[in-house]
Amino acid sequence: MDTITHTLFGLTLYGAADKRDLQTNEKRALFVTTLVGSQIPDSDVISRLWDTEGMYQMWHRGITHSIFLVPLFALLIYILVRLLFKVTDIRYFWWALLSVFIHNTADLFNAWGTGYFEPLSDVRVTFGVIPIVDFVYWGIFLVAWLIARRVDVRHTVYRYAWAAIVVHVLIQSAQGAYLYQSYAADHEKVALSASFIPTQFTVITKTDESVSIYSDSVYQNPEVQYELTSADDADLAPLFAENKEAITLKQWSPFVVVVEDDERLGLYDPRFFDGESSFLYEYIEL
């Protein structure tokens, strides 16, 4: 998800806590716990500073988004709030654990995916059933905030908001799973990318060298958007020798389209194809 959404996750988690018996320093500790926990996995962006091998695509949302690092991040946050706010309640550890878990798990559901099981596996896990920026999330957060301003027991409102988010994710996931299975029977590879409009999906398939991009939904007939051909027999050694990011992109993507013509040798992720190119496109000029 985007930074704004992760921030809203942290604020809504803070809102869902019953703070009626907490002192001021305890409320501040909880606020920092949920907000830092909602952002800390994205601290991997600093890896750009030392990336000389074109590995950033794998490092971002890689090990820091692993389920195995959730307890470590939670412990670091717990130590931080203990030092800053002089609180010792173990519940701050559990709130930190939950906030980091929500960040890492939420990122599984969009097309970018995460290294959820690193370091045991470097496979990028992605479901593609929620867009990177989900305005349904924003709408739920906004409605909850507007209602909470007018009631005395606010945390109950935010808990209902979390329930609504879970329901939204389940509905989107069920539709995505149905579409994925309906295409998987006839194609070698299938990937999903959710539209900004709920229930609408882009389905990308690959069989041999043929790549097709469909607009589809469980409520409509599929519509072919683009038909692409991947030059899978091309020798990519020159590309990989000159462009290290291309190696990473091929490893990171579920599958790629290879381009070989008189001008360029390259590859791109078809999930982000816009009719002319993909913004995840690595190539060399010939």
Rank of each mutant, 00 (worst) to 15 (best):
E209I: 06
D152T: 13
Y214M: 00
V256N: 12
K244L: 14
P222V: 04
A163W: 05
E227K: 14
E223P: 03
D262G: 07
S215R: 08
Q225V: 07
L267N: 03
Q172C: 10
Y158F: 15
V218Y: 05
W162A: 00
E188F: 06
T205M: 05
D152W: 01
D269S: 01
L265A: 05
A164V: 11
Q181I: 02
R264W: 04
E263T: 09
P222S: 06
A194P: 09
K189R: 13
W252S: 04
P254T: 00
A164C: 10
E223T: 14
V169D: 03
I247F: 08
I247E: 13
P254A: 00
S230D: 03
F240S: 02
A234D: 02
A148D: 03
V211C: 07
A184G: 05
V169P: 00
L267R: 02
R149P: 04
K244A: 13
S195D: 14
D269K: 01
A164T: 10
V256F: 02
E223L: 11
D152A: 09
K244R: 12
S173E: 03
T202P: 02
H155K: 05
V190P: 03
V224Y: 03
R149K: 15
W252R: 06
T207A: 02
A164N: 05
Q251H: 02
A241D: 12
V151I: 13
Q225R: 14
V259D: 02
Q220I: 05
F201C: 01
A185V: 14
Q220C: 08
G176A: 01
Y219I: 10
Y180F: 15
Q220R: 12
L249D: 01
V153W: 00
Q220K: 13
T229R: 11
L239R: 04
R150H: 07
S230N: 01
R154P: 09
K189S: 10
Y183P: 06
E242M: 12
N243W: 08
W162Y: 04
H155C: 05
V259L: 06
I247D: 08
R159G: 07
F255E: 09
V211R: 06
Y178S: 11
A231P: 05
A185R: 15
H168Y: 10
D233G: 05
Y219R: 13
W145A: 15
S217C: 09
I213V: 14
Q220F: 08
T199Q: 04
I213S: 09
G176E: 00
T199F: 07
I171L: 15
V190A: 03
D186T: 10
W252P: 00
Q225Y: 03
V167L: 15
